[in-house]
């Protein structure tokens, strides 16, 4: 127990950094995944092909390999995920702006990987919307973009929210890989740091780090159960 109390600041800041990582990667995945889903249902064959290829690649490559690629391969061609140094946002998420790229790289890797799953969850939601909805939208003259935005996606969301939640929960757990790819100070790096470098007792540290992840994932799971139950009632 002393191990936990003595290192509570490290655990707490680790929790906060993991939380930041998950919020940013989650939002990024949802945005990129939505774009991919729109590509996959678009009437333009090359765009559909692009969306499908992306999903096939990132859904079938291990996350570790994606991390490896982003953290070690991309910098060799000059990509350091600098596009994530978003002015304003880096005031709140201070790690975004710093010179060392590992926080941004972790977001980027998680986002690239998770977006493929977000896309598929959304697409299953789109498939749950009866074809007559999109047809009626076309018949009053809505363009493809208007159709997606005002008719198809709002209804697809409803069917997709539970699978999307599962995707985000998986992403939160996956974020633990970041500590093994250069990121310092998140929950998984704190675990390594305390146990390997400082020789603290592994079991209490494990319990504290696991609790940090559970605090993130369990409430999300409960919310999803609630949504699912409500949907079952209204169906």
């Amino acid at each position: 127990m002393d191990v936990i109390l003595n290192n509570r600041d490290a655990f707490f800041s680790g929790f906060l950094l993991t939380l930041q990582l998950c919020v940013l990667a989650g939002v990024g995945s949802l945005l990129l995944g939505t774009v991919l889903a729109v590509l996959r249902i678009s009437p333009v064959p090359p765009l559909r092909w692009l969306g499908t290829s992306y999903v096939n690649v990132f859904r079938n490559v291990p996350l570790t390999v994606v991390f490896f690629f982003v953290v070690f391969a991309l910098p060799t061609i000059g990509v350091r995920a600098d596009f994530l140094q978003i002015p304003g946002l880096d005031q709140v998420f201070t790690r975004l702006g710093i010179q060392l790229p590992y926080f941004r790289m972790a977001i980027f890797a998680l986002m690239l990987y998770t977006a493929a799953f977000v896309c598929e969850a959304l697409r299953s939601g789109v498939n749950a919307v009866p074809p007559g909805q999109a047809e009626a939208a076309r018949s009053i003259g809505l363009t493809f973009t208007q159709n997606v935005r005002h008719v198809v996606l709002p209804q697809a969301w409803k069917a997709a929210v539970v699978p999307l939640g599962s995707v985000i929960i998986a992403m939160i757990k996956n974020s633990a890989l970041a500590g093994f790819f250069g990121l310092t100070g998140d929950l998984s790096a704190t675990f390594q740091q305390l146990v390997s470098a400082r020789g603290q007792a592994a079991i209490p540290v494990f319990l504290a780090v696991a609790a940090g992840f559970l605090v993130l994932t369990i409430p999300l799971g409960l919310v999803l159960d609630q949504v699912e139950r409500r949907q079952a009632v209204t169906r």
Binding site: R40, I41, S42, P43, V44, L47, R123, V126, N127, V129, P130, P131, Q133, A134, A137, R138, L142, T143, F144, T145, N147, V148, V151, V152
Partner: peptide, 10 residues
């Protein structure tokens, strides 16, 4: 996808 909201994009 059966619900492809076919329409103008290109």
């Amino acid at each position: 996808a059966p619900t492809r909201p076919d329409g103008p994009a290109a």
